[in-house]
């Protein structure tokens, strides 16, 4: 049995940058515990000496010449920003330094 607590959920939410409501915290604590308990069946499988698969085609050759190519124009990059200064070419966020 996974023993996930509300405190665990709050810790994970902070890591994941999610501001959860009290109701969400309650709901997720139960649901995530169920899922983790279910996933514990993997512990029954002997994986001694078995490498992890990070990529299904480990021999894939992905090199290419390192040549400059056109990239996104600043006005296109800024076009979807919720807040930006188009003239300065900058995204805007709340004050970071006091």
């Amino acid at each position: 049995m996974s023993r996930l607590t509300i405190a665990d959920v709050e810790r994970i939410a902070a890591l994941a940058h999610l501001e959860l409501t009290g109701e969400e915290k309650q709901l997720f604590t139960g649901q995530l515990a169920d899922i983790l308990t279910y996933a514990e069946q993997l512990q029954q499988i002997d994986t001694t000496g078995v490498p992890a698969t990070a990529h299904v085609h480990p021999d894939l050759r992905a090199e290419r010449p390192d040549e400059p190519a056109p990239s996104l124009a600043p006005e296109d990059a800024l076009a979807n920003a919720p807040d930006a200064d188009a003239e300065a070419g900058l995204f805007k966020v709340p004050r970071v330094i006091g």
């Binding site: 959920v9 890591l15 940058h17 999610l18 501001e19 995530l32 899922i35």
Partner: peptide, 21 residues
């Protein structure tokens, strides 16, 4: 934090939480 809480639906939050864990 608020962008992501308002913007994501419950299943996406659940998976982000599980993956982070």
């Amino acid at each position: 934090d608020r962008t992501r809480d308002e913007g994501f639906g419950p299943e996406v939050k659940r998976r982000i939480m599980l993956g982070t864990y």
